[in-house]
Design a protein around this nucleic acid. Structure first.
Lengths: 124, 124
DNA sequence: TGCACATTATACCTATCGGTTAATTAACCT
DNA sequence: AGGTTAATTAACCGATAGGTATAATGTGCA
């Protein structure tokens, strides 16, 4: 997996782990608490593994308190994802793809034909 | 993998595939063109597989033109990711992460009793 | 001292991932 | 028809992902 962006994406590519992150937005939680919604579906060691994946990706920080491990959301780790996403935002947010990125930086202006699309080829 | 958000995240969790998406922001490309930067590292069938992953995730649309398959970026598919990310933005964007998280949940402060971790940073 | 509880480690299983080589399909071009 | 090119399929491989059951670790407490 190597690079950390890939690691983060991989960590997010699982509904159980995303649900855990969602729960952590409501506050820290220890393993048992994090596990509770899933215990009808999977075992505790499975939970531990999921948490470890989140931890390695930097999305969660664990601290120990006696026999409990308190997990904290570290949303910082999502910034890299957000930054990566940003380069694509203009491609989905407006109809006039790349032009839109430019227009956003200016006061309202009118759009002249969106086909500014640098993208056709077929030049065979 | 089931859910499409997981599928999208999984598709993005590979540097080769992300590089392909990046190239597609510059314009459509067929398989050979997409493959070109990677052919010293991997074979053409490997490329085909990567493209197929992107296609199944909806990130790329393929159209055929004689023996060529023209690939187009479909950034629409990234919107679901962006929407998901949005719910975490406040957790990394503000300088006062923790405080922000706390403020957002202020209305439901009645759970402070039972839950040992209701939300507070644990005066350790 | 010793039990109960929270969590992790170990060992194992199956399925999927990312890659390979070799063969196949499909279209074009004389 | 035959050859070249673009892309895919098929069969295979080793590594990893996600899960299991069970054993081990570490801490608080009666």
């Amino acid at each position: 997996m190597q690079d950390s962006l890939s690691q983060t994406f991989a960590a997010l590519a699982d509904p159980t782990r995303r649900a855990m992150l969602a729960q952590l937005t409501l506050g820290d939680a220890n393993i048992s608490e994090l596990a509770q919604p899933f215990l009808d579906r999977m075992s505790l060691p499975a939970i531990t593994k999921h948490v470890k994946v989140l931890e390695k990706a930097g999305l969660v920080v664990k601290s120990r308190d006696a026999q409990w491990r308190s997990c904290t959301l570290n949303a910082e780790a999502l910034r890299a994802v957000a930054d990566w996403m940003e380069q694509y935002r203009s491609f989905w947010e407006a109809r006039f793809d790349r032009l839109d990125a430019y227009l956003k930086t200016l006061p309202k202006k009118q759009k002249s034909e969106g086909a500014k699309n640098g993208r056709q080829r077929k030049a065979k």
